[in-house]
């Protein structure tokens, strides 16, 4: 198993190097002149030129690249031109915000989608199968910003059950000490139950919004994969042995059907983490998605670089995790695979 992990990590190195080069080049190729933007609309060409020199943008590309690599090694992703804050520090606070939201959404999605998909496959054509079809169709057809606004309208504006959609915490609370960056976990570490409840309250609506979206591919994949496994020979053998339907469905069928579901889970996770900008906007969530978009609009290349780097590393890590999970689930995925 360790060997497998080491192997996959080594295989990831060229990918990461490629990402470093491409992000550097891409952010330089972005339309818009960072120096002009930074100088402001009233700046003279001379002032813009001065700023360009100060930022090092006038130097040859390869010199800038070497500087960039040096900074990376020191863990310095540069400063944002718009906020003046170090990008690294922004990412460290914003990534957990997005990750906490996405993870909770995924947990909710898995808890609903997997049983739904399994039941839909086991009782094909029953009401639960139809329910699953309706839910998955709704999940793919409803845009997240719409679901988000709808949830805010109903549960905040109409019913008043949810707190206002204004970020990770109500203004009356101060965030817990930074340990993991996940408010739910940090508040528990601080033994502040009130804070935990407040943070959870803020999370519920945006997490549900994302969960509705993530449900669809998961439920569909679970159902399809279960159907394929349920019609295989070894399920017939298990039935011929008189095993209980619970054993047949869970131990025999589901464990065999879970691999494609895990793959889908990884894809959905990485997609949600970076692409939930709209949800972050609707709920004023200080995540990395909105950070990246704002920087992109402002031609602020350092945060964009940092964002792409972070996402690339996350993908590598996630794929590694999925590979390891495969090995745990399926004995045929050996060390030599």
């Amino acid at each position: 198993m360790l060997q497998l992990i080491a192997q996959r990590l080594t295989a990831a190195v060229p990918g990461v190097l490629g990402v470093i080069v491409v992000t550097f080049l891409l952010s330089r190729a972005l339309p818009g002149d960072p120096a002009a933007y930074f100088a402001g609309p009233a700046a003279t060409p001379q002032a813009i030129e001065e700023i360009r020199q100060k930022l090092g943008l006038d130097r040859p590309m390869w010199e800038q690249f070497i500087d960039y690599i040096g900074d990376l090694v020191r863990g310095d992703l540069g400063n944002s031109l718009t906020t003046g804050q170090p990008v690294m520090q922004e990412l460290v606070t914003r990534l957990p915000a997005s990750a906490e939201l996405t993870l909770l959404a995924l947990v909710v999605a898995v808890l609903v989608a997997v049983p739904l998909g399994v039941l839909a496959a086991v009782k094909q054509g029953s009401w639960i199968d139809h329910l699953s079809r309706v839910v998955t169709t709704a999940g793919v057809s409803l845009p997240t910003f719409f679901t988000g606004l709808l949830l805010v309208y109903v549960f905040y504006y109409k019913l008043g059950w949810a707190p206002p959609p204004l970020g990770r915490l109500d203004i009356y609370f101060s965030p817990p000490d930074h340990v993991t960056g996940f408010y739910l976990i940090d508040s528990l570490i601080a033994r502040d139950l009130e804070l935990f409840v407040a943070a959870l309250g803020q999370l519920i609506l945006p997490a549900s919004t994302l969960a509705v979206f993530a449900l669809a591919p998961l439920a569909r994949m679970t159902r399809a994969s279960m159907l394929a496994v349920l019609s295989s020979d070894f399920i017939r053998t298990a039935k011929a042995g008189g095993l209980r339907s619970h054993t047949v469905v869970v131990t025999y069928a589901f464990r065999n059907a879970v691999l494609p579901v895990v793959t889908t889970l990884g894809m959905v996770f990485s997609f949600l983490l970076g692409a939930n900008v709209l949800v972050e906007k609707v709920f004023s969530w200080p995540g990395i998605g909105s950070y990246a978009i704002e920087s992109l609009i402002a031609s602020d290349y350092a945060p964009v670089q940092g964002f792409v780097m972070t996402m690339a590393l996350l993908y590598v890590f996630l794929n590694l995790l999925i590979d390891v999970l495969y090995g745990v689930i399926d004995p045929r995925v050996g060390i030599d695979a």
Binding site: D233, F234, T237, A238, K239, G241, T251, N256
Partner: peptide, 29 residues
Amino acid sequence: RGRELSMIFQNPRAALNPIRPIGKQIADI
């Protein structure tokens, strides 16, 4: 089934659960 009436199938490799040790599959019955 499995106690009074049993059945064995053709294509035995496909007829066994691929990700469960065979001893466990017998023990299940």
